[in-house]
């Protein structure tokens, strides 16, 4: 048989790297935090991503799925994810223990245009699991604090217990270089001292915004986009400075399997970060 032994192949973008679960704990009832390190030390340290990018994670026997990176490249070595239990791969991830191995490849996607955002005011609006990709860019901006203007965070959750990274964000309220506003739709704990109401009820609390000089970054459940985008447009933030990150079925992450295609835009290559302008002229985006 003429089986070829391809020595010429140096890179195989489909082949994962073994990676170790360093730490894992629950963030809410169905969302868990994972700290992961690529097993090969050199590769772990040379891994570079932009905030807003994602990786493909595989669990042996379960399959592979895309996940946003929640950590910032300004703190290299470890990768962090917050993952909701929703399907076969995430179910398997929830069974995995610290020190177990998974497969990981990436980073993929465009990520947030952090270079264009330099010197601009950054308004981050997150709801629910939208905190997963946006925490990355928030921490990045805070780590490079002098590169940016004002940094404003609006974070909404249904109930206090469902607020992802609640303690982390609550402690951020102490910072004087961050305008941090948190809200819950309803308080069933009786101990919530912050705003109660949907995330848009935080907008009136903002000090006046310089729209032309502001980048707004949004991620959350579909219903949130509808109302938040309206607020942002009302603030006169240009549509190409409103950035959102989107979810699609993906099987490859590298623009080949076709599942995430919208027209001829591949969410995995040309996204997952799109501007509101992209969304308006590409019909199927949201």
């Amino acid at each position: 048989m003429n089986t070829t032994k391809p020595q010429s192949i140096k890179t195989n973008p489909f082949l994962p790297e073994p990676a170790r679960i360093v730490r894992t704990y629950d963030l809410t009832d169905d969302v868990r935090f994972f700290q992961v390190r690529i097993a090969d030390m050199e590769k772990a340290l040379s891994f570079r991503n932009r905030p807003g990018q994602f990786v493909m994670i595989s669990v042996l026997g379960a399959g592979e799925a895309p996940f946003s990176i929640s950590s910032t490249p300004s703190r290299p070595g470890l990768l962090e994810f917050c993952i909701r239990k929703t399907g076969i791969v995430t179910d398997a991830l929830f069974r995995i223990k610290e020190n177990d191995l998974i497969g990981l490849r990436g980073p993929y996607g465009n990520g947030f245009p952090v270079d264009n955002m330099v010197d601009k005011d950054i308004l981050i609006v997150m709801g629910g699991l939208g905190a997963a990709p946006l925490r990355s860019v928030l921490l990045y901006c805070l780590d490079n604090r002098d590169q940016f203007g004002r940094i404003i965070l609006l974070h909404g959750a249904k109930r206090p217990a469902e607020m992802i990274f609640r303690d982390e964000f609550l402690s951020m309220k102490e910072r004087d270089d961050l305008e941090c506003y948190l809200s819950v739709d309803e308080d069933d704990s009786g101990q919530w001292t912050d705003n109660i109401g949907v995330v848009t009820t935080l907008f009136p609390k903002l000090e006046s915004i310089d729209p032309a000089n502001t980048y707004a970054l949004v991620c959350g459940p579909p219903i949130m986009y509808k109302f938040v985008l309206k607020e942002l447009v009302n603030l006169h933030i240009p549509k190409d400075q409103i950035l959102m990150t989107l979810e699609r079925r993906m099987k490859c992450g590298v623009g080949k399997c076709g599942h995430c295609a919208i027209d001829y835009i591949y969410t995995c290559l040309d996204g997952p970060v799109f501007t509101y302008w992209d969304v308006l002229h590409m019909r199927e985006l949201i």
Partner: peptide, 19 residues
């Protein structure tokens, strides 16, 4: 088959390719 996955290693498989 693109590759065989084991807990510690991933082995690419090109055996379906022939001249």
């Amino acid at each position: 088959r693109m590759y065989e996955a084991t807990p510690k290693k991933f082995h690419a498989d090109f055996s379906h390719i022939s001249k």
